[in-house]
Protein backbone atom coordinates (compact mmCIF):
# COMPACT_ATOMS: atom_id res chain seq x y z
CA UNK A 1 0.00 0.00 0.00
CA UNK A 2 2.61 2.53 0.98
CA UNK A 3 5.33 3.81 -1.24
CA UNK A 4 8.39 2.24 0.24
CA UNK A 5 9.49 0.16 -2.69
CA UNK A 6 12.97 1.63 -2.48
CA UNK A 7 13.19 0.56 1.14
CA UNK A 8 13.75 4.17 2.15
CA UNK A 9 13.54 5.35 5.69
CA UNK A 10 10.03 6.66 6.20
CA UNK A 11 10.33 10.43 6.10
CA UNK A 12 8.12 12.05 8.66
CA UNK A 13 6.00 14.91 7.58
CA UNK A 14 6.78 14.74 3.90
CA UNK A 15 4.00 12.64 2.45
CA UNK A 16 4.39 11.11 -1.00
CA UNK A 17 5.71 14.40 -2.39
CA UNK A 18 9.36 15.27 -2.00
CA UNK A 19 10.44 11.75 -1.16
CA UNK A 20 13.33 12.08 -3.56
CA UNK A 21 16.22 13.62 -1.63
CA UNK A 22 17.63 15.48 -4.64
CA UNK A 23 14.30 17.01 -5.54
CA UNK A 24 13.90 18.03 -1.93
CA UNK A 25 17.19 19.94 -1.98
CA UNK A 26 16.28 21.67 -5.24
CA UNK A 27 12.94 22.78 -3.80
CA UNK A 28 14.54 23.90 -0.53
CA UNK A 29 17.20 25.97 -2.32
CA UNK A 30 14.61 27.50 -4.66
CA UNK A 31 12.47 28.56 -1.71
CA UNK A 32 15.49 29.92 0.13
CA UNK A 33 16.62 31.91 -2.93
CA UNK A 34 13.12 33.32 -3.30
CA UNK A 35 13.04 34.34 0.37
CA UNK A 36 16.41 36.08 0.08
CA UNK A 37 15.51 38.18 -2.97
CA UNK A 38 11.83 38.77 -2.14
CA UNK A 39 12.31 42.14 -0.34
CA UNK A 40 14.31 43.44 -3.33
CA UNK A 41 11.63 42.45 -5.84
CA UNK A 42 8.55 43.41 -3.89
CA UNK A 43 7.93 46.64 -2.08
CA UNK A 44 8.07 47.25 1.63
CA UNK A 45 4.35 46.55 2.02
CA UNK A 46 4.70 42.99 0.81
CA UNK A 47 7.86 42.57 2.86
CA UNK A 48 5.84 43.36 5.98
CA UNK A 49 3.22 40.81 5.03
CA UNK A 50 5.86 38.18 4.29
CA UNK A 51 7.45 38.90 7.67
CA UNK A 52 4.11 38.24 9.29
CA UNK A 53 3.73 35.03 7.28
CA UNK A 54 7.16 33.86 8.47
CA UNK A 55 6.20 34.63 12.06
CA UNK A 56 3.15 32.46 11.47
CA UNK A 57 5.35 29.68 10.13
CA UNK A 58 7.17 29.64 13.48
CA UNK A 59 3.94 29.75 15.49
CA UNK A 60 2.20 27.14 13.35
CA UNK A 61 5.14 24.73 13.51
CA UNK A 62 5.09 25.14 17.29
CA UNK A 63 1.39 24.44 17.54
CA UNK A 64 1.82 21.58 15.08
CA UNK A 65 3.98 19.79 17.63
CA UNK A 66 1.18 20.05 20.20
CA UNK A 67 -1.80 19.41 17.94
CA UNK A 68 -0.32 17.56 15.00
CA UNK A 69 2.16 15.28 16.71
CA UNK A 70 0.93 14.84 20.25
CA UNK A 71 -2.75 15.20 19.31
CA UNK A 72 -3.57 17.70 22.06
CA UNK A 73 -6.11 20.30 21.03
CA UNK A 74 -4.89 23.71 22.19
CA UNK A 75 -7.23 26.68 21.83
CA UNK A 76 -5.03 29.09 23.78
CA UNK A 77 -1.74 28.94 21.94
CA UNK A 78 -1.56 32.74 21.68
CA UNK A 79 -0.87 32.69 25.44
CA UNK A 80 2.65 31.34 24.86
CA UNK A 81 3.16 33.87 22.09
CA UNK A 82 2.09 36.54 24.62
CA UNK A 83 4.38 35.16 27.33
CA UNK A 84 7.37 35.52 25.00
CA UNK A 85 6.43 39.00 23.84
CA UNK A 86 5.58 40.33 27.29
CA UNK A 87 8.68 38.88 28.92
CA UNK A 88 10.78 40.84 26.42
CA UNK A 89 8.61 43.92 26.87
CA UNK A 90 8.66 43.89 30.65
CA UNK A 91 12.33 43.01 31.06
CA UNK A 92 13.64 45.51 28.52
CA UNK A 93 11.36 48.41 29.41
CA UNK A 94 10.72 48.00 33.14
CA UNK A 95 14.07 46.48 34.08
CA UNK A 96 16.32 47.83 31.37
CA UNK A 97 17.57 44.44 30.20
CA UNK A 98 19.23 44.08 26.84
CA UNK A 99 17.09 42.11 24.35
CA UNK A 100 19.53 39.19 24.26
CA UNK A 101 19.73 39.05 28.04
CA UNK A 102 15.94 39.05 28.23
CA UNK A 103 15.57 36.45 25.50
CA UNK A 104 16.53 33.36 27.58
CA UNK A 105 14.06 34.52 30.22
CA UNK A 106 11.34 34.64 27.56
CA UNK A 107 12.11 31.03 26.68
CA UNK A 108 12.25 30.07 30.35
CA UNK A 109 8.94 31.81 31.02
CA UNK A 110 7.37 29.81 28.19
CA UNK A 111 8.73 26.56 29.62
CA UNK A 112 7.27 27.48 33.01
CA UNK A 113 3.94 28.45 31.45
CA UNK A 114 3.91 25.17 29.55
CA UNK A 115 4.55 23.16 32.70
CA UNK A 116 2.05 25.15 34.76
CA UNK A 117 -0.77 24.73 32.28
CA UNK A 118 0.26 21.28 31.08
CA UNK A 119 1.19 19.57 34.34
CA UNK A 120 -2.24 19.45 35.94
CA UNK A 121 -4.29 19.27 32.73
CA UNK A 122 -2.62 16.75 30.47
CA UNK A 123 -4.43 13.87 32.14
CA UNK A 124 -7.65 15.32 30.74
CA UNK A 125 -9.25 14.00 27.58
CA UNK A 126 -8.74 16.19 24.58
CA UNK A 127 -12.07 18.06 24.60
CA UNK A 128 -11.67 19.07 28.24
CA UNK A 129 -8.10 20.06 27.54
CA UNK A 130 -9.34 22.33 24.74
CA UNK A 131 -11.57 24.21 27.20
CA UNK A 132 -8.79 24.53 29.78
CA UNK A 133 -6.36 25.90 27.19
CA UNK A 134 -9.03 28.30 25.99
CA UNK A 135 -9.36 29.55 29.55
CA UNK A 136 -5.61 29.79 29.96
CA UNK A 137 -5.35 31.94 26.84
CA UNK A 138 -7.92 34.33 28.25
CA UNK A 139 -6.29 34.40 31.69
CA UNK A 140 -2.99 35.46 30.18
CA UNK A 141 -4.63 38.16 28.07
CA UNK A 142 -6.70 39.50 30.98
CA UNK A 143 -3.67 39.48 33.25
CA UNK A 144 -1.76 41.53 30.69
CA UNK A 145 -4.75 43.90 30.47
CA UNK A 146 -4.94 44.46 34.17
CA UNK A 147 -1.44 44.32 35.55
CA UNK A 148 0.52 47.50 36.10
CA UNK A 149 3.77 45.92 35.01
CA UNK A 150 2.42 44.91 31.58
CA UNK A 151 1.08 48.39 30.91
CA UNK A 152 -2.59 47.45 31.25
CA UNK A 153 -4.75 47.89 28.15
CA UNK A 154 -2.33 50.21 26.39
CA UNK A 155 0.44 47.63 26.60
CA UNK A 156 4.15 48.28 26.39
CA UNK A 157 5.78 50.51 23.83
CA UNK A 158 9.26 51.71 23.04
CA UNK A 159 10.86 48.25 22.95
CA UNK A 160 14.38 48.72 21.60
CA UNK A 161 15.59 47.12 18.40
CA UNK A 162 18.20 44.51 19.24
CA UNK A 163 21.58 44.33 17.58
CA UNK A 164 23.46 41.18 16.78
CA UNK A 165 27.28 41.09 16.59
CA UNK A 166 27.34 44.76 15.66
CA UNK A 167 24.46 44.48 13.18
CA UNK A 168 21.71 46.80 14.31
CA UNK A 169 18.40 45.16 13.41
CA UNK A 170 16.31 48.16 12.52
CA UNK A 171 14.51 48.30 9.20
CA UNK A 172 11.57 46.26 8.09
CA UNK A 173 13.86 44.34 5.74
CA UNK A 174 16.23 43.55 8.62
CA UNK A 175 13.36 42.03 10.57
CA UNK A 176 12.23 40.19 7.50
CA UNK A 177 15.58 38.41 7.35
CA UNK A 178 15.50 37.72 11.09
CA UNK A 179 12.20 35.94 10.60
CA UNK A 180 13.54 34.06 7.59
CA UNK A 181 16.25 32.67 9.86
CA UNK A 182 13.77 31.91 12.65
CA UNK A 183 11.46 30.10 10.25
CA UNK A 184 14.33 28.04 8.86
CA UNK A 185 15.42 27.08 12.37
CA UNK A 186 11.83 26.17 13.22
CA UNK A 187 11.55 23.98 10.12
CA UNK A 188 14.83 22.18 10.79
CA UNK A 189 13.98 21.70 14.47
CA UNK A 190 10.55 20.33 13.51
CA UNK A 191 11.99 17.81 11.08
CA UNK A 192 14.63 16.67 13.52
CA UNK A 193 12.14 16.32 16.35
CA UNK A 194 9.73 14.41 14.12
CA UNK A 195 12.44 11.92 13.24
CA UNK A 196 13.56 11.37 16.81
CA UNK A 197 12.73 9.09 19.69
CA UNK A 198 10.55 11.81 21.20
CA UNK A 199 8.84 12.56 17.88
CA UNK A 200 7.87 8.93 17.46
CA UNK A 201 6.70 8.77 21.06
CA UNK A 202 4.25 11.62 20.34
CA UNK A 203 2.76 9.60 17.50
CA UNK A 204 2.56 6.43 19.59
CA UNK A 205 0.77 8.25 22.37
CA UNK A 206 -1.57 9.97 19.96
CA UNK A 207 -2.52 6.73 18.22
CA UNK A 208 -2.94 4.51 21.27
CA UNK A 209 -2.14 5.75 24.78
CA UNK A 210 -2.46 2.33 26.42
CA UNK A 211 -0.30 0.53 23.90
CA UNK A 212 2.28 3.31 24.23
CA UNK A 213 2.28 2.92 28.02
CA UNK A 214 2.65 -0.81 27.60
CA UNK A 215 5.75 -0.14 25.50
CA UNK A 216 7.25 1.76 28.42
CA UNK A 217 6.42 5.29 27.31
CA UNK A 218 5.46 7.74 30.04
CA UNK A 219 2.56 9.41 28.29
CA UNK A 220 2.22 12.34 30.69
CA UNK A 221 5.90 13.18 30.34
CA UNK A 222 5.82 12.86 26.56
CA UNK A 223 2.75 15.10 26.27
CA UNK A 224 4.28 17.63 28.61
CA UNK A 225 7.38 17.70 26.42
CA UNK A 226 5.19 18.48 23.40
CA UNK A 227 3.49 21.25 25.32
CA UNK A 228 6.73 22.81 26.50
CA UNK A 229 8.42 22.62 23.11
CA UNK A 230 5.34 24.12 21.44
CA UNK A 231 5.44 26.87 24.05
CA UNK A 232 9.09 27.61 23.27
CA UNK A 233 8.33 28.04 19.56
CA UNK A 234 5.49 30.41 20.49
CA UNK A 235 7.64 32.42 22.88
CA UNK A 236 10.52 32.78 20.42
CA UNK A 237 8.05 34.07 17.83
CA UNK A 238 6.57 36.40 20.43
CA UNK A 239 9.95 37.77 21.52
CA UNK A 240 10.92 38.83 18.02
CA UNK A 241 7.39 39.99 17.30
CA UNK A 242 7.72 42.39 20.26
CA UNK A 243 11.10 43.64 19.05
CA UNK A 244 9.82 44.08 15.51
CA UNK A 245 6.75 46.12 16.38
CA UNK A 246 8.38 47.89 19.30
CA UNK A 247 4.99 47.93 20.98
CA UNK A 248 2.66 45.20 22.19
CA UNK A 249 -0.83 45.29 23.60
CA UNK A 250 -3.16 42.62 24.96
CA UNK A 251 -5.26 42.64 21.80
CA UNK A 252 -2.37 41.19 19.78
CA UNK A 253 -2.87 37.94 21.71
CA UNK A 254 -6.59 37.43 21.43
CA UNK A 255 -8.50 34.18 21.05
CA UNK A 256 -8.74 35.02 17.35
CA UNK A 257 -4.97 34.79 17.12
CA UNK A 258 -5.03 31.29 18.64
CA UNK A 259 -7.75 30.26 16.22
CA UNK A 260 -5.89 31.62 13.19
CA UNK A 261 -2.77 29.64 14.07
CA UNK A 262 -4.82 26.50 14.70
CA UNK A 263 -6.69 27.06 11.43
CA UNK A 264 -3.42 27.28 9.50
CA UNK A 265 -2.23 24.00 11.03
CA UNK A 266 -5.46 22.16 10.25
CA UNK A 267 -5.74 23.69 6.80
CA UNK A 268 -2.25 22.69 5.76
CA UNK A 269 -2.48 19.26 7.33
CA UNK A 270 -1.81 18.43 10.96
CA UNK A 271 1.53 16.77 11.52
CA UNK A 272 2.76 17.50 7.99
CA UNK A 273 5.50 20.10 8.10
CA UNK A 274 5.33 21.39 4.49
CA UNK A 275 1.55 21.49 4.78
CA UNK A 276 1.70 23.53 7.97
CA UNK A 277 4.08 26.02 6.32
CA UNK A 278 1.70 26.28 3.37
CA UNK A 279 -1.20 26.77 5.77
CA UNK A 280 0.62 29.64 7.49
CA UNK A 281 1.20 31.40 4.18
CA UNK A 282 -2.40 30.88 3.04
CA UNK A 283 -3.84 32.27 6.27
CA UNK A 284 -1.69 35.41 6.06
CA UNK A 285 -1.48 35.97 2.31
CA UNK A 286 -5.03 34.88 1.46
CA UNK A 287 -6.84 37.95 2.75
CA UNK A 288 -4.17 40.18 1.19
CA UNK A 289 -4.48 38.59 -2.24
CA UNK A 290 -8.23 39.08 -2.07
CA UNK A 291 -7.91 42.75 -1.14
CA UNK A 292 -9.47 43.87 -4.43
CA UNK A 293 -12.74 42.35 -3.35
CA UNK A 294 -13.06 45.02 -0.68
CA UNK A 295 -15.35 44.21 2.18
CA UNK A 296 -16.28 40.83 0.74
CA UNK A 297 -12.75 39.52 0.98
CA UNK A 298 -13.11 37.85 4.38
CA UNK A 299 -16.36 36.24 3.28
CA UNK A 300 -14.75 34.88 0.11
CA UNK A 301 -11.73 33.75 2.10
CA UNK A 302 -13.92 31.96 4.64
CA UNK A 303 -15.88 30.17 1.91
CA UNK A 304 -12.59 29.16 0.33
CA UNK A 305 -11.39 27.68 3.62
CA UNK A 306 -14.68 25.81 4.05
CA UNK A 307 -14.38 24.33 0.57
CA UNK A 308 -10.80 23.22 1.22
CA UNK A 309 -11.83 21.52 4.45
CA UNK A 310 -14.81 19.87 2.76
CA UNK A 311 -12.72 18.39 -0.02
CA UNK A 312 -9.50 17.81 1.88
CA UNK A 313 -10.51 17.15 5.47
CA UNK A 314 -7.03 16.04 6.48
CA UNK A 315 -5.40 19.16 5.08
CA UNK A 316 -4.10 20.42 1.77
CA UNK A 317 -0.81 18.56 1.88
CA UNK A 318 -1.15 15.00 0.58
CA UNK A 319 -0.03 11.91 2.43
CA UNK A 320 -0.77 10.26 5.69
CA UNK A 321 -1.47 12.37 8.70
CA UNK A 322 1.35 12.76 11.09
CA UNK A 323 3.81 10.55 9.33
Amino acid sequence: MTSNSNGAVPTHGLGPFLQDARLRWVVAIAILAFLVVAPMIFGSYITVILTNALLYVVLCLGLNIVVGYAGLLDLGYAAFFAVGAYTIGVLTIQFGFNFWVAFPFAVLAAVLAGVIIGGPTLRLRSDYLAIVTLGFGEIVRFSARNLEITGRASGISGIQDPSLFGWQIRTQTDYYYVFVVLAIIAVIASFRLANSRLGRAWLYVRHDEDAAEAMGINRVQVKLAAYVIGAIFGAVGGAFFAANLGAISPESFSFEQSVLVLMAVILGGMGKIPGVILGAFIIILGPELLRDLGEFRLLVFAVGLLLIMLFRPSGIWPGRRGA
Binding site: N4, P10, R200, L203, Y204, H207, A211, M215, R320
Partner: peptide, 15 residues
Protein backbone atom coordinates in the same frame (compact mmCIF):
# COMPACT_ATOMS: atom_id res chain seq x y z
CA UNK B 1 0.13 2.00 16.01
CA UNK B 2 -1.85 3.02 12.94
CA UNK B 3 -0.30 4.95 10.05
CA UNK B 4 3.16 3.86 11.07
CA UNK B 5 5.46 1.30 9.55
CA UNK B 6 6.21 -2.10 11.03
CA UNK B 7 9.71 -0.92 11.96
CA UNK B 8 8.42 2.26 13.60
CA UNK B 9 6.01 0.14 15.61
CA UNK B 10 8.80 -2.08 16.86
CA UNK B 11 11.01 0.94 17.59
CA UNK B 12 8.45 2.01 20.21
CA UNK B 13 9.70 -0.83 22.40
CA UNK B 14 13.17 0.67 22.57
CA UNK B 15 11.84 3.93 24.02
Amino acid sequence: FREMTVLENVMSGMH
